[in-house]
Design a protein around this nucleic acid. Structure first.
Lengths: 213, 213
DNA sequence: ACCTGAACACCGTTCAAGT
DNA sequence: ACCTGAACACCGTTCAAGT
C-alpha cells in the first residue's frame, strides 16, 4: 500500500465549499460575482424556488457556468446568505455583551425572523435543511443555531425562559413564524405573532411563584 | 339587451367544485374514484408535491382524464381532504358541547395539527392558500378556520385565552408547528412544541392577577 | 360524454466540445 | 482552467382526435 502523501500546509484551514474566489482565473471570478449579483435580484423577485436557468440567462452566462460555480441550489443560497448569517452571529455577541439575557434573546430572534424573510420561501428552506446535515447551507445554519443557543441558555440560567426548550426549538419556531408572515394578509401580524410565540417561551409563572389566588 | 334567463331551480344549492360523482357516466365515476384512491397512495408516499403524471400513470388513466376530473392540484387535494375536514368540523361541535372552553380549543388544535400532518407539505399548502381565496381548497379551509374561531372565542370569553389573537392566528400557528414537525429530528417534539405555542396563547398572568412579588 | 396521448413550453442536470 | 449549449429525462397543461 502506498501511504497518502502528507497534506501540504494549507494557508486557509477552512476554505468552505463556496469560498471567496481568490486565485481563480479572472473571467471565472467575474462570472462568480456576476451570477451572485444576478441571483440576488432574481430570487428577490421570484423567491428561493426561482428558475436557475433564468438566473443564468439574465446573467448572460452559460448554464454550465452557473452549475460549475454553484453545484446545487443550496450552494447558491449559502453564498447569498453568508453575509447576513455572519452579521447575525456578530449581533448575538453584541447583544450578549450589552443587553440583559432575555432582552438579548428576543431582540436577536426578531432580527432572525426579519433576516429569514429576505426571500420568499427561505424560512421553509432553512427548516428543511435540518433533515440532511451535509448540505451546503447546513453548516452556516448550524453556526446560526448555536449563536441562538448561547443566548437562549443565558436567558434560561436567569430563569427568564422555560428550561424545556432547546436552541433548535426556538430557531425553528421563529423561522416558522417568519414563514407564515412572509406574504399575504398575515404579513402585518409578524411582530404580533412573534410576540405570542415568545410569550410561550416564558416559564409558567403560576408554578414558579406559587398560586396567586 | 336580452335579460339573463332565470336560474333553474337547483336541487343541490351548494354542489361544490368537486361534488360527488352522482349522475355521471359509469366509466367517469369509476375513473374519478380510482384516481382519488391512487392519489391517496401516491401523495402518502411523495407528499403534496407528487407528480400528477405519476398519479395518472399508476391509476392507468390518460393524463387528460385526471385533469378533466381535477383541473388543478388543489382540486385533487380538496377532494382528498374533504372527509378529514368534515370530521374536524364535527369534532369542534362535539368538543364544544362536552368539554370546558379552553380544553375544547387545545384538544381541537392538537387534532388539527395531526390532520395537517397527513401528507408531507400539506401544512405549507394550507397556509399558502390564504393568499388566493378563490382556490378550491380555500372554501373548505375557511370552514375549518371558522370552526376553530368558534372554539377560540368561547375560550376567550372565559378569559382562558388572550384576547389579542384571532382564529386565523391560532389556525396558522398550529399549522406551522405541524409543518415543522412533519419529518426530521423535530418529529418527536410535535406535542411539546405545540404545548409551547399553546402556552403563548394564554393571557399574561402577571397583569391579570397583579404583581405577585 | 368521456377518454386518450401527442404536442408544447418549461425545468434541472450532465457532459462533450470548444477557447 | 474555464465556458458553452445541446442533449436527456423529467414536469404541468392543453387540445385535436377518437369511442
Amino acid at each position: 500500500m502506498i501511504a497518502e502523501p502528507p497534506e501540504p500546509p494549507e494557508p486557509r484551514p477552512v476554505p468552505g465549499p463556496a469560498s471567496a474566489p481568490r486565485d481563480r482565473r479572472a473571467d471565472a471570478r467575474r462570472n462568480y460575482e456576476h451570477i451572485l449579483a444576478t441571483a440576488q435580484v432574481v430570487l428577490a423577485e421570484q423567491g428561493v424556488q426561482a428558475s436557475l436557468r433564468d438566473v443564468a440567462r439574465r446573467a448572460e452566462v452559460g448554464l454550465g457556468t452557473l452549475y460549475r460555480h454553484f453545484p446545487t441550489r443550496e450552494a447558491l443560497l449559502e453564498a447569498l446568505l453568508r453575509q447576513g448569517f455572519d452579521r447575525l452571529v456578530e449581533l448575538s455577541d453584541t447583544l450578549a455583551a450589552t443587553r440583559p439575557p432575555a432582552a438579548a434573546l428576543t431582540e436577536w430572534l426578531r432580527e432572525l425572523a426579519a433576516g429569514a424573510g429576505t426571500y420568499q420561501g427561505l424560512p421553509a428552506s432553512l427548516v428543511a435543511i435540518m433533515d440532511d446535515p451535509d448540505s451546503a447551507l447546513a453548516v452556516s445554519c448550524a453556526a446560526l443555531r448555536s449563536a441562538g443557543t448561547r443566548l437562549l441558555e443565558r436567558a434560561q440560567a436567569d430563569g427568564e425562559i422555560r428550561p424545556d426548550v432547546t436552541g433548535t426549538d426556538v430557531f425553528v419556531l421563529t423561522t416558522a413564524v417568519a414563514a407564515l408572515t412572509e406574504r399575504g394578509p398575515l404579513a402585518q401580524r409578524r411582530d404580533h405573532l412573534l410576540g405570542v410565540m415568545l410569550d410561550g417561551l416564558r416559564p409558567a409563572p403560576r408554578e414558579l411563584f406559587g398560586p396567586c389566588s
